[in-house]
Design a protein around this nucleic acid. Structure first.
Lengths: 179, 179
DNA sequence: ACCCTATATTAAGCAGGCTTATGAATTTTG
DNA sequence: CAAAATTCATAAGCCTGCTTAATATAGGGT
């Protein structure tokens, strides 16, 4: 275990010990890989509609409820406001989304779909169904539902971890930037 | 589909109709979200070791087998060679990895860990165990193992889809390197 | 030998995630 | 009411993925 500091064996080409990770560690690498591949594939396919997976998620949310502030929507998508702002920049340029000022608070901008967005959403919806069917080939419905429940647990755990880390900012938070 | 142009009520804060997606579609969004949160959290935590999740994955592979070409390693990690090249750039700058020329083919560069890499790997290993335990809190061992099996199916499906789509790259270089 | 194709690496440039910081506006507090 | 704190949006800059294309080398066919 504590091979730290040892010099490298350098060339065990003959064999691959492949010390297997714990299932927990394995899950970490797997979920990252699977999500990245899904993103790449979805982006490839969505390009013919001039969209991407991330933009699609934004449109998807707006389809269900328009008029949210950028902050609200970012919260809902679990991304940072600045990340959403740049996505919305592009969606506005493409004429799919509109920023409107709030009547009561001049800081906030509320988001609305333009008519142009609806056909795009329809196309992306079909594409999504097709992609996910191919992605989940070999897993029956009950399995997928169980998967969804378990991933929700994972996501909630992670949101918790990130929130705790953000608020407490333990002692050595600024040992890099000096400030 | 022609509800375009209708104005939104703008503030139905009381309720969220939330027309539910199919479990398949839901899985798509969930796995992306969970993986992104995991990456963000891992990057946050790994920063104190001056590393990131992606760099860590590279070191991890090299720990098991040094002397691979960049191409081989990229294949193994399921990323594009250029993506790996830039990761390796930074790892070399940090003095954790070394590029050595191949004796027989002057195009290829083979990758080796430096002694400095081993303590970092040890620290990251502990961190990984801690993070994944927190991430998977509430899911028992059998469930995690099942998850791993199912995610492997998903990953294989996606690799297939991406390979088929890449018409110009039929390179089925089968490195039988194990994992 | 020579050309032609294939392969390994890298460059250029975009997307989307983050952190950190800033300007404007609102809200809270003294 | 004025000053301070908070909040919304966004700018700047980094990392990691991708695509597309450039470069250098290897190798085969004639």
């Amino acid at each position: 275990m504590n091979f730290a500091g040892r010099d490298s064996p350098a060339k065990p080409e003959f064999a691959m010990p492949e010390r297997s990770l714990s299932p927990q560690r394995e899950f970490g690498f797997l979920i990252s890989d699977a999500a990245r591949l899904l993103r790449t594939y979805t982006d490839q396919r969505a390009r013919e509609f001039g969209s991407t997976r991330a933009q699609w998620a934004v449109l998807n949310r707006l389809e269900r409820r328009q008029g949210m502030s950028q902050n609200e929507l970012a919260c809902m998508l679990d991304i940072q406001p600045i990340t959403l702002a740049r996505l919305v920049d592009r969606l506005c340029e493409d004429g799919l989304v509109e920023r409107r000022p709030d009547a009561e608070d001049r800081r906030v901008k509320r988001l609305y779909l333009t008519p142009k967005a609806y056909p795009v959403l329809a196309s992306l919806g079909e594409l999504g169904t097709e992609i996910m069917q191919a992605t989940l080939a070999g897993l029956d419905d009950a399995t997928v539902r169980a998967l969804v429940r378990q991933l929700e647990v994972v996501k909630d755990n992670l949101k918790e971890l990130l929130q705790v880390g953000a608020s407490t900012t333990p002692s050595d938070a600024d040992l890099k930037t000096g400030t």
